[in-house]
Design a protein around this nucleic acid. Structure first.
Lengths: 151, 151
DNA sequence: GCCCTCCTGACCAAGAAGGTCAAGAAAGTC
DNA sequence: GACTTTCTTGACCTTCTTGGTCAGGAGGGC
C-alpha cells in the first residue's frame, strides 16, 4: 500500500505539462522543474504517451504536451498508466478473490479500500492540482490535522 | 498501491484467531482453514507476535491466540505489522516530502489518499470482520455497485 | 524422555524498483 | 543535404521485495 517513485514522478510531470501555457515542453525542462532523473523521466513519459495521456514531437521545437484538456485527466489516469490497476490484492482485483471461513467479509473490506482510494484519485484532475483548488471532499480529508499525523 | 499476499494472509489468519472460541490454535489449523502455506504463515505469525498482536505457546496444546480482544485490533494494526506504514510515497511519509513548482498541491492529494485509506482500515476491527457487521461508512463504500466494477 | 509446536535464520528464484547507457528515428534549421 | 535537436526504444544494471522453502533449535506438556 505505497505509491511508487514512478507514479509520483508521473503525476508531477503531468502537472507541469498541465500548467504549460502552450506549445510542447522539452523533457529536460520537466526533469529540471521537478528534479527527476531525465532518462528515467523519458521512459515514464513514453508510458504516458502509450496510454494516450500525453503527446510528443521530436526535433527542435519538439517536446511533450497533454493529449486532452487538463480538467479531463485525473490523477488516477496517470497512476494507472504507470503502475497498473489500483488497489489489487495479491496481484488480482479484489472482486475476483474468494474468501473462506472467518475471512469471508474481508473481500468487502478490500473493495471498500479500493473505493475510498478511487474517491480521491479519480476526482482530482490535473487542472485541480495546478490551481490548488481541490474537490471539497478531498480538501476535507487533507485538512484534518489527524490526516497529517504519522502512524 | 496494492495489498501484498502477506498482508492479506495476515488479516485472514488474524480473523481466524478472532473467531476461535478459546484456547490456542495451531499454525497448521490456521494454514488449512485459510489455505496458506504453513511455513510462510509461521513467519507472518511471528511478525504479528513481535508487533504484540498475537501470543503463542509451544508444545502439545500450544498454538496462537490474540493478545487483545478482537474488537480492539483493527485491520490497520495487522497490515502495519507486516507491511510497515500505510500509503508511503517513495518510501517516505507524504507529510515529509517537499513538492515544488506546479506539483505543490500533490502533497495534499497524497495526504488525502492516506486519510481515506485509514478511514477504512483503522475502523474495521477483527470482531467486525468475523461478524460481518462492518462500520456503516465502510458498508456504504462497499455496497455501491460502482465499487465492484473493475477499472 | 519424548513428542509436539513454535522460533529463527539461511537460502532461493523471480520480479519489481529505480535508474543508466547508447543507438536510432523524426523534425526542424541553414 | 547536412546538422542539430529532441523524442524513442531496447539493453543493461544493482538492489530490494515478494513469496516462498528448508532445516535445525528451543521450550512446553505428559
Amino acid at each position: 500500500m505505497r505509491v511508487s517513485a514512478k507514479a509520483d514522478y508521473a503525476v508531477r510531470a503531468a502537472a507541469e505539462l498541465a500548467a504549460a501555457e502552450q506549445g510542447p515542453v522539452k523533457g529536460e525542462r520537466l526533469a529540471e522543474a521537478q528534479d527527476i532523473p531525465l532518462q528515467f523521466l523519458e521512459h515514464i513519459l513514453l508510458e504516458l504517451k502509450h496510454a494516450g495521456i500525453v503527446r510528443a514531437r521530436r526535433g527542435a521545437k519538439g517536446g511533450y504536451w497533454l493529449a486532452r484538456p487538463a480538467d479531463t485527466i485525473t490523477v488516477a489516469d496517470v497512476v494507472r498508466a504507470v503502475e497498473g490497476p489500483i488497489a489489487h490484492v495479491q496481484s488480482a482485483p479484489p472482486e475476483s478473490i474468494e474468501y473462506r471461513g472467518n475471512a469471508q467479509h474481508l473481500q468487502e473490506v478490500w473493495i471498500a479500500v479500493r473505493a475510498s482510494l478511487r474517491a480521491v484519485v479519480e476526482h482530482v484532475t490535473l487542472a485541480d492540482l495546478v490551481s490548488g483548488d481541490l474537490p471539497a471532499a478531498v480538501e476535507a480529508l487533507a485538512s484534518s490535522p489527524d490526516a497529517w499525523a504519522a502512524r
